[in-house]
Design a protein around this nucleic acid. Structure first.
Lengths: 338, 338
DNA sequence: GCGTGGCGGGAAAGCGCTTTCCGGCGCTGC
DNA sequence: GCAGCGCCGGAAAGCGCTTTCCCGCCACGC
């Protein structure tokens, strides 16, 4: 084992050309190489099974074929959808995706960025939710600066960051429209299962929802915060049930939380939507077949990943670009007239 | 922008030591460095914000801090769970995961492996399902050889491959046990929604299920093949419905397919489990809250990812190791007595 | 006929690290 | 008191590639 790798030098020697020529042929350069030399090199490379050493190329070019992707939890369908979009675009561009997961610890984001910088990643997509944790934020900001100084681009999904390209889903507007739609069904008493208050996404959705209720002249909702996960939704719903507030409609700021909440409600014998209506946010594809079908705000998650990757890959100016994607209210069986 | 990166040389100069010493301090070497020099280097590195150039290290060491992970579709919860396990272990070991997706095209697997080889990835976990496509298989086999020759380790999940470490879920045994359990509920007429016949996983599960039915003295099931996806399950179930076979119980070889199948049945007004029972395989966590709760065979997916990563990261002997993980039959509300 | 340019090939200088090898120094053991 | 050894620091040789620079060659213009 460990038969050493075929190098460019070997190919060049075998083909009877110089290193420079071989390099020019095998890796697009601006310089031309004559037809016959070129063909000879190509053939030799093929015969020898030459595979360029990406580290060496990265070192020589000071830029690698890697693009980073940072998510909280790849298991969460929200992130895996975005990841699918990012990888599709990156792979189409001949780049490899390096996946980093934070496990929802804010400080990991900066660490991962630093690693990515060490690898001279060409670009990185930050899909995590922005927190309001000051220390983590400023450490992250510093890393983002360092990363772009070094020549890499960074794009964020759903979090506007200092001078980075951004894909911004209509969290506020979507939640607001949802609130109005639910009010249109006749509901007057609402509860919101919110995410942790330091997550900006959670806050935006909550704020939008409140605004929508206000639009309809409805009293502010009861708000219960929980983790941004299935279990968080479950716990929040349990808390809601014991709180004796008599809401007729619950908005969970995330489809995944809504799933947990529905489980809790069912467990307690609360019927959906007869006893209580429930809506989520994201429209996770994997969850579309659940019963009752979940009312939600559809976000084109994979597309958002593609857009982010697109932004980060075509160099663009120095200008930070922002692409807004709208959420679309989708009312299904989990919400009924009141 | 593009303020050049701080290099080891700068740190060394600033700290007044040689390159060698700085390298020894900053990146664990066997050689000792005196207390005061060591501390000086560390401090200088910190002040300057030194981050080692991973490409250069990889080149010099001829081995990178990258481990590959190849899946068909990161959006599929089966794969995202495995991915979570792999990344957890890899990140804990200070390595970065590069994620490759095949989009279920068999030939992509070899391509990705080749890219990974170019990057001198230390190891790779192949989580895709093995196909019986001869050409793709032999191309893949060649790449696996090349990869390990070059010093990288490769592990497969659910597909025994030439001399690679493997994590083998009990597909056959699990499906067999499931069949017996369902027979125990009194069912006598079964249908199986199988995956594409060239996928070994699909075939194993089907074979195991048949064996289980045989154990119980039950006639072979009607088999309908479809894609290994939600839509595949939907289509297969539709076909089943039009086929007029009067099965009382359906086994979809995958939870995701089962979800599609349930959607199809519901659409046609078939009640689950009153009119027909249905079971899946995998026990996808995201799908555990669906109604009716899906009977299935539980596989510890994240753990499988962890095991695979563990195998591939601790060097081990030349021996190819195989770890079997058992599936556990979980009967829930989607299957009823007949 | 000779100067001028353009073109394609090759030599060689890096890119930022790791690691081998060498040399100096302070000990130990006789 | 000195040979010998272990220890630690530094010089320098790569690792495999890209790219600059130079050089020879040919076509062309006067």
């Amino acid at each position: 084992m460990s038969a050493r790798q075929v190098t460019l030098a070997e190919v060049a020697k075998q083909a009877g050309v110089s290193l420079a020529t071989a390099s020019r042929v095998l890796n697009g350069s601006t310089r031309q190489v004559s037809e016959d030399l070129s063909e000879r090199v190509l053939r030799t490379a093929e015969e020898l099974g030459y595979v360029p050493n990406a580290s060496a190329q990265a070192l020589a070019r000071n830029s690698s074929a890697l693009v980073g992707l940072v998510v909280h939890d790849i298991t969460d369908p929200y992130f895996s959808c975005i990841a699918a979009g990012v990888t599709r675009v990156a792979e189409a561009a001949g780049l490899s995706v390096v996946l980093g997961t934070t496990g929802r610890r804010p400080e990991r984001e900066a660490e991962l960025l630093s690693t990515l910088r060490a690898h001279r990643a060409r670009a990185v997509v930050l899909a995590g939710s922005r927190t309001t944790d000051r220390a983590a934020q400023s450490r992250l900001a510093a890393e983002i600066d360092a990363f772009s100084e070094q020549g890499g681009r960074v794009a964020c999904v759903s979090q506007a960051k200092l001078g980075t390209d951004t894909v911004v889903p209509g969290n506020r507007a979507g939640a607001r429209a949802l609130a109005r739609a639910l009010a249109g069904l006749g509901h007057r008493k609402f509860a919101v299962l919110g995410g942790p208050s330091e997550l900006v996404v959670a806050r935006d959705r909550l704020a939008g929802f409140k605004a929508g209720l206000a639009d309809a002249g409805i009293a502010p909702p009861v708000v219960i915060n929980g983790a941004f996960t299935r279990d968080g939704g479950y716990a929040a719903a349990m808390e809601l049930l014991t709180s004796k507030s008599r809401s007729t409609c619950v908005f969970a700021v995330t489809d995944v939380m809504a799933m947990g909440a529905m489980a809790a409600l069912r467990e307690r014998g609360v019927r959906i939507p007869e006893d209580i209506s429930i809506a989520g946010f994201d429209d996770i594809p994997t969850l579309r077949d659940t019963v009752p079908a979940l009312s939600t705000v559809r976000l084109p998650l994979e597309e958002m990943g593609e857009i982010a990757a697109g932004l980060v890959l075509d160099a663009g100016g120095d200008e930070a670009r922002t692409v807004r994607v709208a959420g679309e209210v989708v009312l299904r069986a989990s919400t009924a007239h009141n």
